[in-house]
Design a protein around this nucleic acid. Structure first.
Length: 880
RNA sequence: CGGGGCGUAGCUCAGUUGGUUUAGAGCGCUGCCUUGACAGGGCAGAGGUCAUUGGUUCGAAUCCAAUCGUCUCGACCA
């Protein structure tokens, strides 16, 4: 046994077994007669590297998949990545810039060639990192949202929805990201409260020597003002309505109009209206037929050729305009104000509301059935509290802006003719045919049409994921899609419940007429121990691969699970993965102990070991039942903790200590084999959570064929017969006595090696019979006898209703301490009885409470009374 | 501003439709213990007016209301 290290070292073990599983195809799944269990991975961003959120999320998926596999299901975990159009395009643009190439100087085709090259080089990193974690994905099935088949699916569904009238093109106010130079969806805008300034600016009234003062946080937008608006009931401005005022720097005059939208209390009660750059102003503009003046270039620079601010950056222009207004005496005052500003999720640029021509997906009709399936629990959200959030969002959906002004992604299959017509078709040839189908006179040619320059939102690919990874669009009858769809569980972060989960449900129903998965497990957000979200900018996130290196993948997996109750955020602290590593080490040493025993075939099994074996079997099956229940409720951390306590406390602290032969002596064959069997059950139960160390121990416990690898071993099943022995409560009493005896030694400064005798005064000796030998061994007791009366000079303690005595020489000090102890115990009991008596003395309690509750209170009372009597007797004797 | 969640031991959390001892776990903490599987260990111990206030009830950590704190989602107040 000396050749087995006392410390478990994960590194080489992890690599060895991951290769073993991979090379022998244990992760692979093909349709067959078994029940399928399928998870599609939430495809990480192809530019991404593994962070703590991925670790948690993918650990949970792997636990579910490995457990299902051991339960005999056909487990299929489909991996892949998404193309993350904005993020990837930004990275490629940056890379090109470093090489001295401007995106604007190359063609779309050249750019895409660079992008693909970049993707091939860096795109697989995150998947390789998942392997370090132990993820048992079917890697043969790895998909990318821009794979030909998945792209075809995107284009085909776009065409299909367009033909159904669910996709349209229109000028709308969109969220413009001036850094990414693209529109983004509402969901990609993060609103943050910031400290801003509110500028009060005087506009001259045309033809009069008077002014009107407006208030704005964005003075530069005045260049695009096309009205000033007041509240119709605002008496202060009644006389101004219908007049015109002069917009500074532009020489333009705009009407003063009235609308109830204006808040009389805010600012001066006069609102400047810029329909091109504010959603509300846009609505006002439509209502009052106002002109729309777009004063921003796509890069956020001012587009106002007649003014000195032309082509200045928006922020620079703001400063200049404020300064110039001040010089003109038109800046009345500046106030500090807190307001919410939208930032781009991808580039962190300030979002500019901007009017532009975009493609939209009509969400209202499609979302209704997707709401119903969740409300009816056909798609179960775990934890359930997310149902509310989901409902609220689905009842207030807005149309989804699906076009992006980028090159990286699926190009929108819309074609424009030089005479201003639009068709949607898969290829230019098909488009041309559509253009010409009703043409009686001169048909147009390919040279007369051009394709839309924009690509589709990445989520327009991801929402098809559970179908497209199985080729369910092009080949709707193929074996995979028929077998694996709908999938079972989806594990993801609550942040993308709408971005992704809701849209997948919509797509599933729309295109497949079936929900894509039956359960959505929403993990918590990983935060640091101060409760802050982990982020690159804060630098508060540990590197997951460093953690694995330091604590082992098993330790990290277990550490993460232990502290992640469903749906609650997890406050990550390194001590948690340390706990995971320590647990792995504990298991390792239990294995080392058993493996090191000498076996003597001549030895009979002692009765002690038989009891131990029966008792631990009983505990094992209670544990199986408990974890089973927790898994069914997706309470993984509770399942984990149940196993932790079973293994550490029941198996290591009690069972192995019971059967452990004295140093240097051998063990009997039967006990040895039972111990090995117990270890085998433990590693099976633990394998989904800690795959590496368990496979290592499993393989070392016996000679295994390939097919007998732990990853495909049969998961232990609950057996009612095993708990019929009813040894648990007896064991608890024995353990209680052992603890009291140990405590007694400790309090008196005695060595654990000093043997003692024990006497028990009880009415039910049968409670002890099985465990007498256990008590002797673990309590270091020479003899245990049953007595009718208390022996002289002894320390006593109570176990349930029974009194136990340990005969000891008692000096006065000992006797006094003993008396004190008994008195304290009596006080506790008296207090307890008083509280029970209050209940029983209350007539209304006795009248109203359920009979069994009242009966139980009476029993509590009687038990306490009998204990109290026992203690009183002991005290009398001591006082003797 | 609106919706939702959460406040139980130093920390992270359990506590099942109100009653099983005067509330539990893991970690941490304190004391003691090392030739003997493991100091990444063993044994023992301390530690909580269940956020606050009121209500319903024979009985409340549990149900209701308000308050405070905290997190989260949503929103058009310039």
């Amino acid at each position: 046994m000396t050749e087995i290290s006392s410390k478990f070292s994960p590194q080489e073990v992890e690599q060895k077994w991951y290769q073993h599983w991979m090379q022998n195809g244990f992760f692979d799944s093909n349709p067959d007669g078994r029940e399928p269990y399928t998870i599609v991975i939430p495809p990480p961003n192809v530019t991404g590297v593994l962070h703590m959120g991925h670790m948690l999320n993918n650990t949970i998926q792997d636990v579910l998949i490995r457990r299902a596999r051991m339960q005999g299901k056909n487990a299929c975990w489909v991996p892949g990545t998404d193309h993350a159009s904005i993020a990837t395009e930004a990275k490629v643009v940056a890379m090109l810039k470093e090489k001295g190439i401007e995106k604007s100087s190359i063609s779309r085709e050249e750019f895409l060639a660079h992008a693909w090259e970049w993707k091939e080089k860096y795109g697989g990193i995150i998947l390789e990192q998942l392997k370090k974690l132990g993820a048992s994905c079917d890697w043969r099935r790895t998909k990318f949202t821009m794979d030909p088949k998945l792209s075809d699916a995107v284009i085909d569904t776009f065409i299909q929805l367009y033909n159904k009238g669910l996709i349209y093109r229109g000028v709308r106010m969109v969220n413009w990201d001036p850094k990414g130079m693209t529109a983004v969806s509402d969901e990609e805008v993060i609103h943050r409260e910031v400290q801003s300034k509110l500028y009060f600016i005087a506009y001259e009234i045309e033809g009069e020597n008077s002014k009107v003062v407006i208030a704005t946080t964005r003075p530069e937008t005045l260049l695009g003002d096309t009205a000033v608006c007041v509240h119709p009931e605002d008496v202060r401005y009644k006389s101004l309505v219908g007049k015109r005022c002069i917009i500074p720097f532009t020489g333009r005059t705009v009407p003063i109009i009235q609308d109830e939208y204006v808040d009389k209390e805010f600012g001066t009660g006069c609102l400047k209206v810029t329909p091109a750059h504010d959603v509300n102003d846009y609505l006002l503009g439509q209502k009052h037929n106002l002109e729309t003046i777009d004063i921003l270039f796509d890069n956020g620079h001012i587009n106002s050729p007649a003014t000195p601010y032309h082509d200045l950056d928006g922020i620079v222009a703001r400063k200049r305009i404020v300064k110039d207004l001040e010089a003109l005496g038109q800046l009345v005052k500046v106030e500090d104000i807190k307001n919410k500003v939208g930032y781009s999720e991808r580039t962190d640029a300030v979002i500019e509301p901007k009017l532009s021509m975009q493609w939209f997906c009509d969400m209202e009709k499609m979302s209704k059935p997707a709401l119903d399936v969740v409300l009816e629990n056909k798609v179960k959200l775990v934890p359930e509290k997310f149902k509310n959030t989901y409902k609220h969002w689905m009842e207030n959906v807005h149309d989804w802006c699906v076009s992006r002004q980028l090159w990286w992604g699926q190009r929108i299959p819309a074609w424009y003719s030089t005479d201003g017509r639009i068709v949607v078709a898969k290829t230019d040839v098909e488009a041309l045919a559509l253009f010409n189908q009703n043409e009686s006179q001169s048909a147009i040619t390919l040279a007369d049409i051009r394709q839309d320059e924009d690509v589709l939102d990445t989520w327009f690919s991801s929402w098809l994921w559970p179908i497209s990874v199985f080729d369910g669009f092009e080949n709707p009858d193929n074996a995979d899609i028929k077998y694996y769809y709908p999938t079972q569980d989806l594990v993801t972060a609550p942040e993308i419940l709408f971005f992704w989960v809701a849209r997948m449900i919509i797509a599933g129903i729309e295109f497949k007429h079936e929900i894509p998965f039956s359960t959505v497990y929403l993990t918590g957000i990983v935060r640091d121990k101060l409760g802050r979200k982990m982020s690159k900018s804060l630098g508060n996130s540990p590197d997951p691969l460093d953690l694995i290196q330091q604590f082992g993948a098993d330790g990290v997996r277990m550490g993460m699970l232990l502290c992640s109750p469903a749906g609650n955020d997890i406050l990550f602290d390194e001590s948690q993965v340390e706990q995971g590593r320590n647990f792995a080490n504990k298991l390792w040493n239990a294995f080392r102990l058993v493996k090191g025993w000498q076996v003597d075939d001549q030895l009979e099994q002692p009765s002690l070991n038989l009891t131990a074996s029966n008792w631990i079997q009983e505990k094992l099956h209670i544990t199986i039942a408990t974890t089973e229940k927790y898994y069914s409720e997706y309470r993984l951390s509770d399942a984990m903790m149940t196993l932790y306590k079973f293994i550490w406390d029941d198996c290591c602290s009690w069972y192995l200590e019971m059967i452990k032969p004295v140093y240097g002596s051998p063990i009997d064959r039967k006990s040895y084999q039972e111990a090995i069997g117990m270890l085998e059950n433990i590693v099976k139960l633990l394998h989904p959570i800690m795959p590496f160390i368990t496979e290592e121990i499993w393989q070392a416990l016996g000679t295994r064929t390939l097919a007998e690898s732990l990853i495909v071993a049969e998961y232990p099943k609950y057996d009612e017969k095993k708990v019929a022995t009813a040894l648990s409560s007896k064991a608890e009493m024995a353990f209680g006595i052992i603890a009291e005896v140990r405590n007694l030694r400790s309090k008196r400064g005695m060595s654990p090696k000093e043997a003692l005798n024990l006497m028990i005064k009880t009415g039910s000796k049968e409670n002890y019979g099985d465990f007498l030998e256990v008590m002797k061994k673990l309590g270091n007791l020479t003899a245990i006898e049953f007595v009718e009366t208390a022996p002289p000079s002894s320390v006593s303690f109570l176990i349930e209703k029974d009194e136990c005595f340990v005969p000891l020489e008692m000096n006065d000090q000992d006797a006094a301490a003993e008396k004190q102890r008994i008195k304290e115990e009596m006080e506790y009991l008296e207090g307890f009885m008083k509280s029970v008596q209050t209940k029983l003395g209350n007539e209304r309690f006795v009248a109203n409470a359920k009979p069994e509750i009242v009966e139980n209170e009476r029993k509590k009372m009687a038990d306490a009374e009998s204990k109290l009597n026992t203690l009183r007797d002991s005290l009398t004797k001591l006082n003797g």
